[in-house]
Amino acid sequence: MVKVALIDGPDSLTGSEVASRSLRKIVWTRLRRDKLAMVCLFILIALYLIAIFAPVICGLLGVDPYSFDKESISDSGGGPVGTWGGISTEHPLGVEWGTGRDIFAQLLYGLRISLLIATTATILTVFFGTVLGIISGYAGGKTDAVIGRTMDLILAFPFLLIILAMSGVLTQRLTALGVPDGNPSRITYLIIVLSIFGWPYLARIVRGQVLSVREREFVEASIAMGASRYRILFKEILPNLWAPILVYATLTLPTYVGTEAALSFLGVGVLPPDTSFGGMLGNSVSYFSVVPSYLFIPGVVLVVLVVTFNLVGDAVRDALDPRAGRV
């Protein structure tokens, strides 16, 4: 639930001493040695590829998430014909109650939407969190205070409630602004609100980093040499922030996957005929005592997605900061 808040945390995220130039190489070498991480990275790449090529894969298997298969459901009650939610050669993971739509295809298309939302929202969060964090930390004074209070304000909001309450109106506003009606607007809305409620956590970390980096000799030297503010910010300070930002990003992405699923579960998801993990899990509630596979298929995929992301995130952190390592 309050998982976004959980990320705001361990001090181990900060304080990397690794020199910036060789950072990439060092991290990569360390990562390569971590077998579990490599397996997870491989799974993640596979999941992204599956998501991107979902239509092709479904096409090869002859399934699609939108066609109704009336033959596969019973005329009395609308439940799937056969065991395990109607698993058959035609429908590898069974069919949906009441419509006979293919679960496997829905799952692949759901993965697509989940990854699209979570990835984009993470990129935006990282962007705003970094920019505002640097500004806040570097400028100090009033700017810092304004950004700081804004962050306090955002963090004090019960974000799930606000997202639920505002979804209708803001989606309409987006449509009015020219975002295509329907799912594009809804997806954009989710991306925006996730980013809005996510950036302060990163901004705080970045701000702290900036404050400590600013005082270092090489920055002071640059200032003394009359370097432009742009140069100082982006050439001197930013490279020192990559470590915490990267770690934060890898750990935020799975959180967003979970949050997006939770929101869909509560009804603020994509519109039919499309569906997502949360939507599938939400639908399963009415039927899972009879057809448990409705619960477990999307649930397990969701967990695999989040676990592999978290493992990769952990590995990246360890590679960046051996002190906090798993040994």
Binding site: A262, L281, S289, L295, G299, V307, D314
Partner: peptide, 17 residues
């Protein structure tokens, strides 16, 4: 890791199931 990777609603629904 398992704990914070499990979405709360999935964990809850599994518990009920």
């Amino acid at each position: 890791l398992a704990g914070y990777s499990l979405p709360s609603f999935f964990l809850g629904l599994m518990a009920i199931f």
